[in-house]
């Protein structure tokens, strides 16, 4: 019994634990380096984030992502986390009430913490609701900001799966481009939201 036990345990550890993942990493790096490497977004050669990982935007000039419960600071990617608060949690109700800030029919994604703490998306309603604030902060016409939002709305995958949503980082990148264009006096329409 010892021989099959040891040869299978160690053999499989080498095969499944070393050889195959290394081989796969190599192939993936060669064929799909972008995805395999974390879907990083670069601006001017510099990594500004990952398309898949949300960032903390606290400035009024940016669209803000969902509340994040990561421990040290919001959107701390080194320790993904949710609030894990239960539905009857008083702490949760307090937090939600605070986020709602007396509003009515506030989109749920704006009032509740995401599960990963790194949710890169907000709902289109949430984004639209932020348009006036962002437009004011950036002194941009709200219609133009709204146009950016509408352009940034991603439909359901394959037209069917998941939910319509807005990638906050991409929207904000587009917003930056737009602001710069306005600042440089080149009203050349809205820059495309990077995909």
């Amino acid at each position: 019994m010892l021989r099959p036990l040891l040869s299978l345990l160690l053999g499989f550890t080498l095969l499944l634990g070393v050889a195959v993942p290394l081989g796969m990493t190599f192939v993936a790096g060669a064929v799909m380096p972008g995805q395999a490497g974390g879907s990083l977004i670069r601006r001017d050669g510099q990594v500004v984030g990952s398309a898949l990982i949300g960032q903390n935007f606290s400035d009024d000039r940016f669209f803000q992502g969902r509340p994040s419960a990561t421990s040290a600071a919001p959107y701390d990617a080194t320790s993904s986390a949710a609030s894990q608060l239960g539905p009857t949690s008083a702490a949760l109700l307090t937090a939600v009430t605070e986020r709602v800030a007396g509003g009515r029919d506030v989109p749920a994604d704006a009032a509740t913490a995401s599960g990963s703490g790194l949710d890169p998306h907000i709902s289109p309603e949430n984004a639209r609701a932020q348009v006036p604030r962002v437009a004011t902060a950036r002194s941009l016409p709200p219609a133009r900001v709204l146009a950016l939002v509408e352009q940034a709305v991603e439909g359901r995958e394959l037209g069917l799966f998941g939910e319509p949503r807005v990638n906050v980082l991409r929207l904000n990148l587009a917003l930056e481009v737009q602001s710069q264009a306005v600042a440089q006096g080149t009203p050349g329409g809205a820059a495309p939201v990077p995909r």
Partner: peptide, 29 residues
């Protein structure tokens, strides 16, 4: 259906209970 406590606090019931959920999957999945 969402969390009635939160709905009472002013959260829209449309998306349902979103605490602890990311947006991209949707309630069904």
């Amino acid at each position: 259906g969402g969390n009635p406590l939160h709905i009472a606090a002013g959260v829209s019931p449309l998306q349902g209970n979103m605490e602890g959920k990311d947006l991209r999957f949707g309630q069904a999945l």
